[in-house]
Amino acid sequence: MIAALGAAGTTPLHRLPAGAKLLGLALLATALFLIDRADVLAVAAGLGLLAARSTGRPFAALMRDLFGALMVIAAIGIVDLLMVDAATAAVIVPRLMALAAFAHAVTLTTTTAEFTETLERGLAPFERLGLVDAGRVALTLTLALRFVPLIVEEAHEIREAQAARGLSGSPLALVVPLVVRVLVRAEEVAQAIDARGFPPPRSAPRPTSLPSSRQPDPTGDRPSHDHP
């Protein structure tokens, strides 16, 4: 698994519910785009840094986290200065810094589990309309994360095998076998999921005639079924 950026904690931002933080961030981002005063935006950038610092993450670590973003912001500021004017740069740079800092503060204080819960809650209305199946969305996200280290390992294996045969350095020699392995594995994973009857049927009784996913897969040679 990949280690998430966010972690549990006890600071005020940690204790705020994830949904509230996301809503607050969205409102704040909108407000920052509507404000055109350099002095107000500079204060916002300062507050953003304070918010990120309030998560208990040391200042040096924060600077490391935000280094890439700050470089891009600096580059945009320089381009604005050279090609547009100083007034634009004075508005754009603090605005981007404030956004980056506040967003990072939310990321740092929200665990992936909390985000996933919020995502499932956000999908609930669509689920009631029959547009998505939140359980399957969550399963897809989890599967994707679970298989990243395996695919990275396979990529290394393919490279080593080919280096031994003197084939190193060609993107084709790496990516073609990697993609074929991914496709084969995806099929195996799907069979394993079907064999286990996962995800379990939702607690609310399903209309019996609804799901189109029960139709046999027209592309496949074997019938597919969600639940045995």
């Binding site: 599967l143 695919i151 991914v182």
Partner: peptide, 19 residues
């Protein structure tokens, strides 16, 4: 979306991350 489609989508997402 069949389960196979779900598998292809999830593993291709993993491939994009792995790359």
């Amino acid at each position: 979306m069949t389960t196979r489609d779900l598998g292809y989508v999830a593993l291709f997402a993993a491939l994009i991350v792995a790359l």
